[in-house]
Amino acid sequence: MGSGLLYGVKRVSTPKVPTSERLWQLFVIYLPYLWLLLFFLVPFLIIFKISFSDPVIGQPPFTPLFDSSESSFIHVTLDNYRFLFEDNLYWLSYLKSAKIAAISTFWCLLIGYPMAYGIARAKPVQRNILLMLVILPFWTSFLLRVYAWMGMLSTHGLINTALLASGLIEQPLKMLYSDTAVYLGIIYSYLPFMILPLYASLERLDNSMREAASDLGASPYRVFTDVTLPLSLPGVIAGCLLVFIPAMGEYVIPALLGGLDSLMIGRQLFNEFYSNRDWPVATAVATILLIILLVPIMLLQRYQIAQEDGP
């Protein structure tokens, strides 16, 4: 008993880790940690704080973070949020962003699913090439890909030229600077985000699952609805979220392809910030956008973890 207390217990309670090893671990963990705290977490807290402060004329155009004259008291106002709630413009912008993001996501799924399915079922060499062709646009500039659609959709662009030549229309259609253009731009830019997780879940799907269903009497259509689709659902959800979330806050696409009345919230935020210079309202817009996206973001993280662990 006595010796047990002396030796066993004490040793267990203090596992001996050499100091140099501890230092190395601390370095590995806390250097990136500190960076992210400073430049990612703190900025969000500041956004949150400023959204409750008064606008002032000057640089920076908001009341200081910590006012030394009123030492312990931090001035808090809900005016910015009240302003957002009262002005229809903001509500409509959030709704319109959500609508555009949702419809674009749906189209991405519709186009992306058969593509991902086809890639997953191709022969290995073909598959690598097909996959590379999906990823390739990623590496070229996002901005230039959106710009490419300006050329496609403009009054004398390829689509109008083709339609005029075929005699389907007499006057060129006005497609650029419209909601249609924004939809096209978003679907085009985010399609790879849909295809890749779909491909990952379809590729992992054990072919004998499909064969088993077929063997038990399921027609090819039923094999798809009973086995393929349900088993690729994590990929579907991850893909949809990966398109929806960035599309919701999109700025470049509506700015380049959308009309002047294209009220997407990302663009609204940018305008509030640069044109109106009302920073507290801009931060309130950002805070609400973040709150709206919180649920999809958390869902995405759950599904990405599930994807990594496998079905």
């Binding site: 990612f40 956004i47 806050g249 935020l269 950002a286 995405l300």
Partner: peptide
Amino acid sequence: LFTGLIAAPLVMPEVITGLSLLLVFISSEQ
């Protein structure tokens, strides 16, 4: 928290990341 901080920038809308970073630079300058 660390895991969350690593994953968040991947999905954060750029306008929010940009705005928040600008504000942190201005505040730190102050």
